[in-house]
Design a protein around this nucleic acid. Structure first.
Lengths: 245, 245
DNA sequence: ACCTGAACACCGTTCAAGT
DNA sequence: ACCTGAACACCGTTCAAGT
């Protein structure tokens, strides 16, 4: 839960000026939009409310941003750029490609977990090109990924296959992981417990009922690691077939 | 592409009555909503437009459906129920659990490919419980899946792990596959080619540029099969550890 | 240069009223 | 019983006008 998200409009200061005089900018808008989604979900994000949050009328936003839809794309970009500022993530392979792929995977996961309610945007906005598959929607990453593998001996076709395997691994895992952390919800309502957790309508589903507890456990972290290991093994196999074929 | 989706309102007859007199019903509404999404994408789906499509004012819909959001949940349900009508899919294991899991996986994939623009809904609506992870949001499926594996010797914890692995495999693959088939797009606009495909701004990304072609190829089908095979192998490993541990 | 008021076309949703 | 007109509160977006 966050506070500071009420109706007061004023920007939280931090080391900023007394606010109120910081001029609007694309960056500030996008930042505010992301933090709004983090706090309230995408459904509640409105140009008018966002303006209010920035101490400004909605129409002012259109000086800096071409429209709501485009703004959401910028939000996606800004999440993605956080990875780039994370210097460790985007260095080329130094201790082998496995280490390299691991760094990238964990970097993306870190972003997803920092913004569980916004991450589905990264996943669901339509990809602009086949070489920008979600959630790797950034040419710098993709270039680094492909060039890194190539430098380590993967041929072109294998690089492409590894790229596809990597993206679908990330997408499946991270989307489900953030969904469990209470992602997208429709309007503004958080899902309410019905009070009595025993009357769940599971009478007709004895196995589900019995497995309730193991199914409810959050193994996301270890499963991410394990699946990543498997992916790496699969890639190693691809690589060895490359060299010998 | 579909036709029949213009502005004329009238329902296509099929073996129906002369239409115009078929009364509204939840079923007809949900069906129309799904076919609208299939044809125009989610963004364009409006209660008013949907009413128009059914030859009725928007307000009439609220007699049969509690609201737009709830209607979308019904749309998800209806897609999911198509799998249930597909008798082959939900039979319990007969030729071993591998065959069983394969049937289920292919069934879900068939639904996804039938409704590429609607499938992301199945994936992105918030799950109601940990035992309803997208895209397997149906207690009958989940029960069948879990009971099937249990009957084949998987213990409870392993069943739960297999369930999680299965869902994240399906989600990652199918979401990316339908995205490639032109999924969600923002408003109504289909993405337009910029005319000149050589000037793509890829100058700074030599590897991406070089791999354009292998990256553009659609290997979704074979990759689905291969990843599914790997998943089955992984599950087989889980099973053997179960028996011997 | 930067923001706003007023307006437009469109939403989802409600409810009393029509047939 | 089933549908609609009219209305409400809210959207995104535009543009001439304010400071």
């Amino acid at each position: 839960m966050e506070e500071q998200l009420d109706a007061d409009a004023e920007v939280v200061a931090g080391p900023d000026l007394p606010s109120a005089r910081v001029p609007l900018s694309e960056e500030r808008i996008v930042e505010a939009a992301l933090s709004f989604i983090d706090g309230h979900g995408l459904a509640g994000l409105t140009m008018r409310r966002l303006g209010q949050r920035l101490g400004v009328e909605a129409m002012s936003l259109y000086r800096y941003v071409p429209g709501r839809e485009a703004m959401l794309d910028l939000v996606v970009q800004s999440m993605i750029d956080q990875l780039q500022e994370d210097a460790e993530v985007l260095r080329r392979p130094e201790n082998g490609w496995q280490d390299f792929v691991q760094r990238l995977a964990h970097g993306v996961r870190r972003v997803a977990l920092m913004h569980p309610r916004a991450f589905p945007l990264v996943a669901s906005r339509p990809p602009e090109a086949p070489w920008l598959r979600p959630p790797l929607r950034n040419l710098d990453w993709v270039e680094t990924f492909l060039a890194g593998l190539h430098q380590e001996g993967f041929d072109d076709v294998t690089c492409a296959g590894a790229y596809r395997a990597f993206t679908s691994f990330l997408l499946g895992h991270l989307l489900l992981e953030v969904a469990n952390h209470g992602a997208d919800v429709g309007p503004l309502d958080v899902l309410e417990d019905d009070g009595d957790p025993s009357r769940d309508g599971l009478e007709r589903y004895p196995t589900v009922l019995r497995l309730r507890e193991p199914l409810s456990q959050d193994h996301a972290a270890v499963e991410f690691e394990e699946s990543l290991e498997e992916l790496l093994e699969r890639m190693a196999l691809m690589l060895s077939e490359t060299s010998s074929g």
